[in-house]
Each structure stands twice: as structure tokens, then as C-alpha cells.
């Protein structure tokens, strides 16, 4: 067996045991072995299957679903269309008599929307807004459920209505986060008036007003032009851990089990929206917690 054959067979793992040990004692092998060890440092970066699949699922699978459903329903839709036309005519004639106005549907899920006066709204994951195009020229009202960032064109009074309170501005930039038991308004420029059940405050640029489970707080933030979630990161300042988990669940559309974790402890820090394992590390390591990614759920707990 010549040298070339021997190396080929070794590469294919086809040498017998004695041949292998003979070959592995040669100086030639030492060189190859060194090379192979060095080659291993060029390993490809880890591929995040979970995250990549959720990207694909958001961008492709679900948009396709609606199309195929639409195609299947075509014959039904043709008949339905006739009814819709009839009903619309009926509705408008009815509407003229009553002169009521119908709101538009909810707009949801991490999107960017321009309102009729070209004011800009960026909507975070798991959040939705609603406004009436018809009444817009009379009153600028936006209903919000969740979190959104507003850049309001100067003009008449602009209101953001949530369950927990109302924000009133004339023209400015601000972020409103209205989640269960959590209400936070951050002003980025101009002046913002916030009205809740408890109180009424006026916020200057770079100041934050928030109510967590009934407790009010007001503080200022360092120089920032827009909320961090617009750059794909969620940021927290002394927020109970349970709210951090809820935000993580919304961003990644996952379920998290917290087991024996103290979910009332305060967390300051941030996590990224682009990589689940990095996000989990950034919220668990500071609190000495461990995490596990199982198929559809994530478990977080106290480090033993």
C-alpha cells in the first residue's frame, strides 16, 4: 500500500486496527493530526433552528395559509360577495339616517402605521391599536392595547387611550406601554400629559412615568431618541421579573415556566429580540438562574 492509498483509507476510516496504529505512530500522521485539529477551529457558527423556524413561520407559512384558504373558499366567497354588496348598501343607507361612524379594526403585531395626518406609530409585538379614519379630522384618538411608539405631527390634541389611562399631546414623540398591571409612558420630545385613575402628570423629554401593580414611579432616562424595542431589544429598569418573562413570551411567542424562581425580584437589563438563547442568557445569568429549551417550552429555575 503506498502512502496516498494509506491516507485515503485513513480518511475514510477503512484502515484495520493494526494498520491504524502503525499509521498513527508515523511523523507524517503527527503533521496531519495537527492540521486536522487546527481545521476544527473553523467550525461554522451555531445555527439557531428554533429562531430561524419562527422567522420562516412568520414570514412564509402564515401568509401562505391565508392564500390557500382563500383559494379553497373561492366559490363560497363569490356568493358571499353578493351578500356583502347588498349588506353594504343597506348599511350605508342605514348609516346616513343614524349618522354613526364605525371604527376600523385593530391593527396588531410589530408593524408600522401612518395615521391619516401622517403621524407615525410603531407597534410592538403582542400589541394593537385602533382608530377611526372617519372622525380623524375632528378628534385624533388612538386606542392602544400593549406597547407602541408615537411620533405625532403638530396639530390639534392627540389622545392615546388605554385601559389604565390616557395620554394627551399636541405634537411630540413618546412611547406607551399598557400591559396587564403595567402602565408606562416615556416622553422623547415635546410635552406629554398622562392621566390615570390615581393622578395626572406632565412629562418632559427623557422622563418616564409608570404604574406597576398600582405603585407609581417617575424617573428620567439617559440620552435616547427612540425606545430600545425599535432596535430589537427590550430594556428594563427595576421591573419585577414576572413582567420581563411576559415580555419575552410576547417577543418570541413562547411559553416560559418559572418553577421555583422568585418572580417578584426586580430586574434591570435588556434582552435581544433576535436570538432566543442569547436573550435567555441575558436575563438568567444576572439573577443566577438556569434555563432549558425544550421542544415548545422554556424552563427557568434557580441554579442548584
Amino acid at each position: 500500500m503506498n502512502n496516498e492509498d494509506k491516507i485515503k483509507k485513513w480518511l475514510a476510516g477503512e484502515l484495520s486496527e493494526s494498520e491504524t496504529s502503525d499509521f498513527e505512530s508515523t511523523e507524517e500522521f503527527a503533521k496531519i493530526d495537527k492540521l486536522m485539529k487546527a481545521v476544527n477551529t473553523f467550525k461554522a457558527p451555531g445555527y439557531d433552528v428554533l429562531n430561524e423556524y419562527s422567522k420562516l413561520s412568520d414570514n412564509v407559512l402564515h401568509s401562505k395559509r391565508t392564500i390557500s384558504l382563500f383559494e379553497r373558499m373561492k366559490p363560497v366567497l363569490k356568493i358571499a360577495a353578493i351578500f356583502i354588496v347588498a349588506l353594504t348598501i343597506g348599511y350605508f343607507s342605514f348609516n346616513q339616517i343614524n349618522s354613526t361612524s364605525e371604527n376600523q379594526g385593530w391593527i396588531a403585531e410589530q408593524s408600522e402605521v401612518y395615521l391619516p395626518d401622517s403621524s407615525f406609530v410603531a407597534i410592538n409585538s403582542g400589541s394593537k391599536i385602533k382608530f377611526s379614519e372617519k372622525k380623524w379630522s375632528k378628534e385624533r384618538n388612538v386606542e392602544l392595547n400593549g406597547e407602541a411608539f408615537f411620533k405625532v405631527k403638530k396639530g390639534s390634541q392627540f389622545n392615546v387611550i388605554t385601559e389604565q389611562g390616557m395620554v394627551t399631546v399636541l405634537g411630540t414623540e413618546f412611547d406607551v406601554k399598557a400591559r396587564e398591571n403595567y402602565y408606562e409612558v416615556t416622553c422623547y420630545s415635546g410635552l406629554v400629559r398622562v392621566k390615570t385613575e390615581q393622578s395626572e402628570v406632565v412629562l418632559k423629554p427623557k422622563s418616564v412615568y409608570r404604574v406597576i401593580e398600582g405603585t407609581e414611579q417617575q424617573y428620567t432616562i439617559s440620552d435616547k431618541a427612540t425606545p430600545s424595542w425599535l432596535q430589537g431589544e427590550s430594556n428594563f429598569k427595576s421591573v419585577p421579573f414576572s413582567f420581563v418573562i411576559k415580555e419575552l413570551e410576547r417577543q418570541y411567542q413562547i411559553k416560559v415556566e418559572t418553577g421555583n424562581t422568585d418572580i417578584n425580584q426586580l430586574f434591570s437589563g435588556s434582552f435581544s429580540h433576535n436570538n432566543l438563547s442569547i436573550a435567555l442568557e441575558s436575563i438568567t445569568i444576572p439573577l443566577n438562574l438556569y434555563y432549558e429549551i425544550n421542544e415548545n417550552k422554556i424552563v427557568i429555575g434557580l441554579e442548584e
Binding site: V49, Y53, L56
Partner: peptide, 14 residues
Amino acid sequence: FSRIFTTLSTDLFN
């Protein structure tokens, strides 16, 4: 489809 993704995506990426 998702099972195919889980089995093959890493190989394809590499």
C-alpha cells in the same frame, strides 16, 4: 414541514 426543517436546516446551513 417543520420536521423537515428541524432535520435538514442545520445541515443546509453548514
